[in-house]
C-alpha cells in the first residue's frame, strides 16, 4: 500500500506558504556540555555542538551512542545532569514554552494514542501548542503531502508501520516548528518509502526548516546532510561538513581478485581490510600507496589480477574506522 504510491509525495509542495518564522543570527540548536547518566551507564559525557538555522544536520552513531537521549533532552523529555540546550535561543528548561513551540520531534518509537482517529490526534496535538481551527487547513495539507488523506478517520492500530511513522511526522509538524528533529525515521521502512521521506524532509529544508536527522544508514546522511556529527559512547567523535569528513580520512579502497583464486601475496597483507569470497579489499593511503605498486607486487609474486576496482570511502568506512577501536575495547 505504501510502496504502491510514494510518488504522490512528489506533487507540488505548498509548504512555502507557511514558512516558519526566521530568528536572525540565532542557532537552531545550541548544545553545551551535556551530561547524562542512567544508573551506571554514562549515556552522554559532555556533548557540545551548535546547529545553524537552515542546516540539514546529521546526527550519526551506533546503537546506544546516546542520540535518542540527546534528542529527549532537547525535547524536554529527559533532564540533563549538567549542561544547557537552547532551541533558537530559548533554554529548554527555563524557557521551555518557547523552546518547545520552536521544535518538532519525531520520536524513534512508533508511539500512538489508540483512542482517537488520525485527524483528531493531529488536531489535539496542535491544540496543545495553542493552535486552533486556523491550523486545520495546514493539518489537511500535511495529511495530503504524507499520503495519509484516506487515513484521516483510521485508528492508528489499523495502520502499517510506515503509515504510523508518517502520522508521527505529521504530528511533529502540526505547529509548524522551525526546527525539526527526526530520530531514525527510516529505520525499518521499505526503500521506496525511505526515498519518499527523504524528498519530504528535503522540501521541509528547502522551505526554511532546520532539520536534524539521526540515522544509522550512512548513505542517508551522505545523501541528505550538509553537516554531520558522529556520536559514540556518549562522546562527540567528529563534527564536520560532509566533504570535510570524507577528506579527513584520505584513503581509497581497492578491490581485487586474483586468477585461480590465489592468496594475497605477503607483501600486501598489511593493507588488507576485508576479504569476501576471494575478493580482497585493500586500503590505500592517499599520496603514499599507489595502485601501480600494488599491481607490481602481485606481478612479482607470479600472480595475475582477474578483476580490479577502486572506490572512495563512504561514511560507513570512516565511521567504522573512527569507532572500531572503541567498540573493540
Amino acid at each position: 500500500m505504501i510502496a504502491g504510491r510514494p510518488q504522490g509525495l512528489d506533487r507540488p509542495f505548498i509548504m512555502s506558504a507557511h514558512s516558519p518564522p526566521v530568528f536572525a543570527a540565532m542557532q537552531a540548536l545550541h548544545i553545551d556540555n551535556i551530561h547524562k547518566r542512567y544508573g551506571n551507564v554514562q549515556a552522554l559525557k559532555g556533548v557540545s555542538f551548535d546547529i545553524q538555522q537552515g542546516e540539514y544536520f546529521g546526527l550519526l552513531g551506533p546503537n546506544g551512542a546516546g542520540k535518542s537521549t540527546l534528542i529527549s533532552i532537547v525535547a524536554g523529555l529527559v533532564r540533563a545532569d549538567a549542561g544547557q540546550i537552547a532551541v533558537l535561543g530559548h533554554d529548554v528548561v527555563s524557557d521551555f514554552r518557547a523552546a518547545r513551540k520552536s521544535l518538532g520531534v519525531v520520536p524513534q518509537e512508533l508511539v500512538f494514542d489508540p483512542f482517537f482517529p488520525v485527524i483528531d490526534l493531529l488536531r489535539l496535538q496542535a491544540g496543545y501548542y495553542g493552535c486552533g481551527r486556523e491550523q486545520w487547513p495546514w493539518i489537511d495539507e500535511l495529511l495530503e503531502e504524507l499520503e495519509l488523506s484516506d487515513k484521516r478517520e483510521a485508528n492508528m492500530r489499523q495502520l502499517s508501520g510506515g503509515m504510523k511513522r508518517r502520522v508521527l511526522i505529521a504530528q511533529a509538524l502540526v505547529h509548524k516548528p522551525p526546527v525539526v528533529i527526526l530520530d531514525e525515521p527510516t529505520a525499518g521502512v521499505d526503500v521506496e518509502l525511505r526515498r519518499a521521506l527523504w524528498r519530504f524532509t528535503r522540501r521541509l529544508h528547502k522551505d526554511g526548516h532546520s532539520i536534524v536527522l539521526t540515522t544509522h544508514y550512512l548513505e542517508e546522511a551522505e545523501e541528505l546532510c550538509d553537516r554531520i556529527a558522529i556520536l559514540n559512547k556518549g562522546e562527540l567523535r567528529a563534527l564536520e561538513g560532509k566533504r570535510a569528513l570524507l577528506n579527513l580520512h584520505p584513503f581509497r579502497l581497492l578491490r581485487l581478485s586474483l586468477e585461480g583464486r590465489a592468496a594475497l601475496p605477503e607483501a600486501l597483507q598489511s593493507k588488507l581490510v576485508g576479504e569476501v569470497e576471494g575478493e580482497f579489499e585493500l586500503k590505500l593511503e592517499k599520496g603514499k600507496d599507489r595502485i601501480a605498486d600494488v599491481l607490481d607486487a602481485i606481478r612479482s609474486a607470479g600472480l595475475r589480477v582477474e578483476n580490479v576496482q577502486t572506490r572512495d570511502p563512504s561514511l560507513e568506512d570512516i565511521f567504522v574506522e573512527m569507532t572500531s577501536a572503541e567498540v573493540a575495547s
Binding site: 525535547a75 524536554g76 523529555l77 521551555f96 514554552r97 518557547a98 518547545r100 513551540k101 521544535l103 520531534v105 520520536p107 518509537e109 508511539v111 500512538f112 494514542d113 489508540p114 496535538q125 496543545y128 501548542y129 495553542g130 504530528q171
Partner: peptide
C-alpha cells in the same frame, strides 16, 4: 495507559506546563 503505550512523550513534549 499512555505511559505503557509510550505516547505520553507526545504530550510531555508540548509547551503545556
Amino acid at each position: 495507559q499512555s505511559k505503557i503505550m509510550g505516547n505520553l512523550v507526545l504530550l510531555l513534549m508540548t509547551p503545556l506546563s
